[in-house]
Design a protein around this nucleic acid. Sequence first.
DNA 1: ACATGTTTGTTAGTAGACCTTCCTTACTAA
DNA 2: TTAGTAAGGAAGGTCTACTAACAAACATGT
Lengths: 392, 392
Amino acid sequence: MSTTTRSGTGRPGGPVQRQLRPTAKVLPEHARAHNRSLVLGHLFHEGPSSRADIARSTGLTRVTVSDLVAALLAEDLVADLGVRSEARVGKPATLVGLRSADHHVVTLDLTDDDTVHGAVMTLVGEVVRREHVPTGGASGEAAATLVEDVARRLVEAAERPVVGVGISSPGVIDDAGRVIEAPNRGWYDVPLASRLSAALGVPVHVANDANTRALGEYTYGGADASTIIVTVGQGVGAGLLVDGALVRGRGHAAGEIGHVTVVDEDTHGETPQPCACGRTGCLETVLSAPALRRRVAGLAPQDADAALASVGRTLGRCLAPVVSALNLAEVLLSGPGELLDGPLREAATTMLRDRTMPVIGHDLRLRMATLDEDAALAGAAVLVLSGQLGIT
Amino acid sequence: MSTTTRSGTGRPGGPVQRQLRPTAKVLPEHARAHNRSLVLGHLFHEGPSSRADIARSTGLTRVTVSDLVAALLAEDLVADLGVRSEARVGKPATLVGLRSADHHVVTLDLTDDDTVHGAVMTLVGEVVRREHVPTGGASGEAAATLVEDVARRLVEAAERPVVGVGISSPGVIDDAGRVIEAPNRGWYDVPLASRLSAALGVPVHVANDANTRALGEYTYGGADASTIIVTVGQGVGAGLLVDGALVRGRGHAAGEIGHVTVVDEDTHGETPQPCACGRTGCLETVLSAPALRRRVAGLAPQDADAALASVGRTLGRCLAPVVSALNLAEVLLSGPGELLDGPLREAATTMLRDRTMPVIGHDLRLRMATLDEDAALAGAAVLVLSGQLGIT
DNA sequence: ACATGTTTGTTAGTAGACCTTCCTTACTAA
DNA sequence: TTAGTAAGGAAGGTCTACTAACAAACATGT
């Protein structure tokens, strides 16, 4: 028995006018730029290849690939490597490869309050030159000038053409590289990317440090396309990769997970501690490096392990809804291994599995980030690769 | 004093080879399809416009827009509406408009266990015809046949060309419309979209019901581009929109938030209840419609309010990390208003604000979904619009 | 009333991007 | 030696969107 009515009353009321619609026209030249990035991406990830290899991988014809490769050869981005040595049927292939060592990327890591870390890197992330410049507590305009100076020095020191400058900075940063707010540097509404780009004459990309870390782990560290990376340092932050894309969020503040309340009055036997943000019981009050050190200070190894496990459980409880809602494949921890990579990580894993349904928690991995030391620099390099060459 | 070292030791180790790389070549014809969608999208959202209007809005030239519009006129997707009546300077514009009433979309909502809800709708979501077919407890192949029959009847009953069929179904569903698992229908690995498409000769799109609801609210309900919609019915699910795109997740299971553990032994004075999934304390055990009804049954109004508020606080605690990590702008609740839209929603809002940092929680809205009754159908229609015409 | 300026939409020509088809080259296999 | 296979290039065609120029149809100012 089926009921049928004509012209039902319930109607959504028609389409809604939206102010901000992301309407970007696509011209043939954009298509070409995209295909060019496909070629570069193939060479970046797969190494030296023949034009025919690239054609098979990208779906483009050999003719088109030859054309694109010719353009890249003319730009010196790609080098002719001669015929392939392996013996196969048919005409031997001539290999072409990305000239990754003949182009440099300048990267800066502003995560550390006391020191600006900088590097000149090749396109594949090898560090060619390093600088560590004490900030001397500079903030505001002085800090911006310092960053500009370091960047200029590195750009000038680079012995190869510089593709661009990538900067990894704490704070809320929009798509254009404007620092909306970075309290620890006293920056509010500072157009860092456009300022440096104008001063140095080189493309500059700026993004949040946790986000760049996520990018770095994805491109260089083999992280999954659906990953959250939790960075533990002075504070606690997170970078989120969903289906291979960085999550920016409504107000460019995605990943600001350090100030979620995780400790309640009546829960788990903990007492909420005051937080720098003026509230109490934030994740940062238990998981930041200083908080962890305070917690284990003077404890016997066994008690310290229990204390760290307790924090791990809190982290697991906090992440369970995020992992479930996004069906993430991996959770990465970045920070001091002696604190994180032990009872804390194990307890967090257990808690996360226990609190999520099997289909979510089953093949979930919770591991340490692999690029710990240079993750932020590597991520900053990816910013440039992605922004200038379209390589992800 | 700055330290400089050459050729530092820490190197990321080069790029990683990735199996699944989303390399899709872009041809000029794809660019044209994109621009065509831009024109359709403008007409959909802004209503009848002149070619010059569309050119200004899309950034394309008037020549190109004229060309695209001519093609759409030839396809009868767009109609010539004559000259604009308003008096302005210059040659009067001739308006063109989407022929939304001259094309139909067939939509099915499989959320309800007992009944298949179906509709014939116009492109702007007006319901032209409705069907409610009892399932009679059919499952597995029988249920699939039933769905196919209903879809066929509606396609044949449509008095205008059918652009496609959109289906909103519970369960885990991949991008191709294959139902990975839908326990309540006994479907495991059922290629619903391709099966129906072959049987009906019309494009068929299938997606998770919570996800389609999110799409519907975004397109017809004015929801923000960064939104989570929590659907409360027999179970609890969620649909997630991040930066305007649906989140699918690693295993297409994003949004499965109903089975996150939210009630602990030692917490908040609640006792964890057993859940259908075999675990205890899941969100579904307190927030599903039956659970809520059980909870307030026989209570005095005042006590019922307190009970609902308690569930609201639990929901707020669960969502706080998600909202923070993704910097969401809106949380929508979909389900029985008499249970959700009151103390529960208010308590959840308060809890959510209290547990997130101000920059996140400040302009966060937690409101009821606007399309409650037909949200799933509207969302299914959006699936078709988006898949066939590129309208979002 | 009439010239002037503005806006619309079309026509014609151009440049770019990729395709299909055909060819040469250079190797392996029988 | 003869086939067969694969790589790469050359020629020609189609598609796409652009610029430039223009006619039509209106409002406005004198």
